[in-house]
Every structure is written in C-alpha cells, then in structure tokens.
Amino acid sequence: MMNMRDQFSVRENTDIESLKLLRPEWDALWQRCPNATPFQRPEWLLPWVEVFQPPEIWALEVRRDKQLVGLAPLFINHWAPEPVVSTLGAYTSDYLDWLIEPGSPSRIVQSILDYMHADALAADGLELSNVPRGSHLLRSEFLSRWEFEVTPDEACPVLRLPKTTEDLKTIVQNGQFRNLQKARRRAERVGQVQVEVATHHTLDELLEGLMRLHQARWTQVRMPGVLANDAAQEFHYRAARGLLDRGVLRLYGLRLGGVLIGVMYTLAERNVLYCYLQGFDPDYAEFSPGVQMIGAVVEDGVREAKQAVDFLRGREPYKYAWGAQDEPSFRLRAREDMCCSVP
C-alpha cells in the first residue's frame, strides 16, 4: 500500500525480512541524521525484532525520488494494557525516535502522519515513549494538529564534558574525585588494576561477565534486574556483535589481580558516550568498581574531545555525583479518536 504526497511516497514494512532489506539504506539515513542515537541504528533494532518478535510490525518508510528520507519504525504494541502503536525498541531503549532527514523534516513527518491517519489501525491509538527533546515529533505544528498529549517521560542525567580533565573538577563534586582516587589506590594495594575494552576476541568473555555480575548485584537485593530473562540476554549478545563491528560498542572490563570484578556496557556515538548498563562483583564492593569504571569512561571522553557522557534513564544519586544534569524526554499519546479527527 502506497500513499503519495507531492514527490514523497510512504510504504509500510510488516516483517523482519523487509526490514533487513532496508538495512543499507537505513544505515545511510542514520548517518545523515545528526541527532540520531545508537538506539535507532539497524544494529540495535533488528536484533530487538528478531529476539522479542513483536507480532505486528508497522515500519513506515518515506522516499523522495526513490531515496529513503524517513523511517518510522513502529509496531502494534500488544504488551501494553491496550494495543497501541509504539516504536520498535520499546522497553530496552533509552531514546525512541524516528529517522527524519534534515532537508524537509516537516513534510516527511507530515507524510507519515497522513499515512497513519488514512490507515485503519488495529490499536487504540498512538503512544510514543522516551522521545528526545530534539525530535521533529515535538514540533508545535504536529502537536496541535494531531492533538497529541505530551507529558514528561523518564529523564536521562547527562554530564557535559569540559575540554580538559583538570576542568572536570569544576563540574564533578570534589568528593567524587576523592572517591575515585581512593578506590584506585585501595585496589592497587591488593593487586594489578587493569581497565580494558572488549575486542572481537574478548567480547564473549566480557558479555558473559556483564550478565553474571549484573545478576549477582541484583540477586543481593532480591530483585530480578533487567537481564534476568533469556530473551534480554540473547538480544544483547546479538546486538553487541553488530555494534562492535561498527565501532559503537565499548564494553569496559575492570580486573583486579586478573579477576574480572566489573563490566560497563557503553556505546560511543559521535560526540557522546552512553553508559547503558553495568555489573560488578558485590564481593569487591570495597574497591568501588562502578566508580572506577565511570571514571575511566569520563576520562576517555575528555581525551577524545567528546561533548557528553549520557547516563541514560534512571535518577540514581551516583549520576549526579559526577555532575550530571537531567535531559528530559517525553511521552506522546494520541487516542484513536484524536488521530481520526485530523482534517
């Protein structure tokens, strides 16, 4: 089914195979979208679809003169209390958005919304979560015309990096620097301290370590943790390989005397380092492995002239101890009757 809007055409993809065929163009479109995050990459979303198998994929592609200029990776979310249209990657992704080429963003988004309005959805409406502040979906003309209900979603604490490590002291709480230095000295008195980043040869070992240590940490407080089920683990095993191939995945490992005591799952994209997940051995808590790993990430970010370290969802106190400030995200809702009221 295709709907024409001037020179723009919209087509839907309803299965994993059609999404895989889009992969080269999808990647090229991602490269042309300056605000895109790793959570919109095909290396992230294709494994998500393969593992979690949403029953009704509804990915809308927009073309102009045969070139892919927009992609709304949607699905009918039957995991919600009532079926709604949501974005692929829901629940595991910290930012969810559409890929819209900068040249004609308003017309591309409007083409997608018009197509959605014309199509009969087997859902109770539209619900888009974790939409970043810079999304084209938050433009006022779309919000008013579609009667979107916009509410704050989970904030992501972000540390804006200075140009030098010395300047970090003006941003990070003084106590946190002391904690970092004390943790490093304490560990060095026990054995050799080594911080490494996963390669293709060490990826499986560090991923297995992440799963094990993350689970150990949450078992101690009698909670399941986000990696408790097999599907979540399988997703990350699949996504990690593709992300490593693209130079996006940075899986930091912290060893003390040769023993792996901490792993941090980080994504390096453009000018930002995203701290997605971590796990550490509770038996080594006195050496503050979490503080040491974040310290390594922050220092790498400054050396590489990155602009920010994004701690992603969750307002845990340790993030603010590093000087992070909340970056908002938003939830967009439109009931079916709202969508159908568009003139």
Rank of each mutant, 00 (worst) to 15 (best):
L71R: 05
L71H: 05
A72F: 10
P73M: 03
L74F: 14
N77W: 08
N77R: 10
N77A: 10
H78S: 11
H78P: 02
W79H: 11
W79T: 11
A80C: 00
A80W: 06
P81D: 05
P83H: 02
V84K: 07
V85M: 05
T87C: 07
T87L: 15
T87D: 01
L88H: 02
L88R: 01
A90D: 11
Y91T: 09
S93T: 04
S93Q: 02
L96D: 00
D97E: 01
D97V: 00
L99D: 06
I100F: 01
I100M: 00
I100Y: 02
E101K: 08
P102A: 03
S104K: 11
S106R: 15
V109H: 06
V109N: 03
S111I: 01
S111V: 02
S111D: 03
I112W: 07
I112D: 04
L113V: 05
D114Q: 11
D114A: 08
Y115C: 08
M116W: 06
M116L: 15
H117V: 10
H117G: 05
A120M: 09
A120K: 11
L121R: 02
A122I: 00
A123L: 05
A123S: 07
D124E: 14
G125H: 07
G125T: 05
G125Q: 07
L128H: 05
L128G: 04
S129N: 12
N130R: 15
V131W: 01
P132M: 04
R133N: 15
G134E: 13
G134D: 10
G134A: 05
S135Y: 03
L137I: 01
L138M: 03
R139V: 00
S140P: 03
S140N: 08
E141A: 06
F142M: 01
R145Y: 09
E147N: 13
F148V: 06
E149P: 07
V150Q: 13
P152S: 04
D153A: 10
A155G: 13
C156N: 12
V158I: 14
L161D: 09
P162Q: 14
P162I: 12
K163W: 14
K163Q: 15
T164H: 12
T164N: 10
T165W: 11
E166W: 09
E166R: 15
L168Y: 08
K169E: 13
K169R: 15
K169N: 14
Q173M: 09
N174D: 14
N174Y: 13
G175N: 15
Q176R: 10
R178A: 09
R178N: 12
N179I: 00
L180S: 10
Q181P: 05
K182F: 06
K182W: 07
K182E: 10
K182S: 09
A183N: 04
A183L: 04
A183Q: 05
R184V: 09
R184Y: 12
R186D: 10
E188S: 15
E188D: 13
E188K: 14
R189Q: 15
R189C: 08
V190E: 14
V190A: 11
